[in-house]
Computed example of a mutant assay.
Amino acid sequence: MSAPFMSLYRCCQRSALLVVSRRSLSSVSPPSSVSPPSSVSPPSSVSPPSSVSPPSSVSPPSSVSPPPLHTRFLLYLTQRFYDVEMLQSWSFLQRWKRVQKRNTYYSYVQKNYGSDIAAAYYILSLKGRFRFVGQSEWFITDRRGKFNGDFLDHKNTPLEEVNMNYTGINYRGLDNLEVQKSLRTLSLRGCPEVNDWFLARLHMFEDSLEELDISHCPRITTGGLAALRNLKGLKRLDVSSLPGISSPGVVIILLEEMLPKCDVTANGYDHTLREES
Rank of each mutant, 00 (worst) to 15 (best):
M1S: 15
M1G: 15
L8H: 09
Y9D: 05
C11I: 09
C12G: 10
C12M: 14
R14Y: 15
V19T: 12
V19K: 09
S21D: 07
S24M: 14
S27Q: 12
V28Y: 08
S32L: 14
S33Q: 12
P37N: 03
P37L: 11
P43E: 14
S44P: 02
S45N: 10
P49F: 02
P49W: 06
S51H: 04
V52T: 09
V58R: 04
S59N: 05
S59D: 01
P61Q: 07
P61E: 02
V64Y: 00
P67S: 10
R72P: 01
Y76I: 04
Q79Y: 11
Q79P: 00
Q79M: 09
V84K: 13
Q88M: 12
S89E: 13
S89V: 07
Q94R: 10
R95T: 13
V99Y: 11
R102W: 04
Y105C: 04
V109I: 12
S115C: 08
S115M: 09
A118E: 06
A118W: 00
Y122D: 03
L126Q: 07
V133F: 06
G134V: 04
S136D: 14
E137M: 10
E137A: 11
W138Q: 07
D142H: 09
G149M: 06
D150E: 13
D150Q: 13
T157E: 02
T157Y: 05
T157C: 08
L159G: 01
E160P: 00
E160L: 12
V162H: 03
T167C: 06
R172Y: 09
N176Y: 09
V179E: 07
Q180I: 06
R184W: 00
G190P: 05
C191R: 04
F198W: 00
E211P: 00
I214G: 01
S215Y: 03
T221K: 08
G224S: 12
A226I: 05
A226P: 00
K232Y: 03
V239T: 04
S241E: 07
S241Q: 13
P243Q: 15
S247K: 05
P248R: 02
V250C: 06
V251G: 01
I252M: 10
E257I: 07
P260D: 11
P260S: 08
Y269N: 02
L273W: 10
S277Q: 11
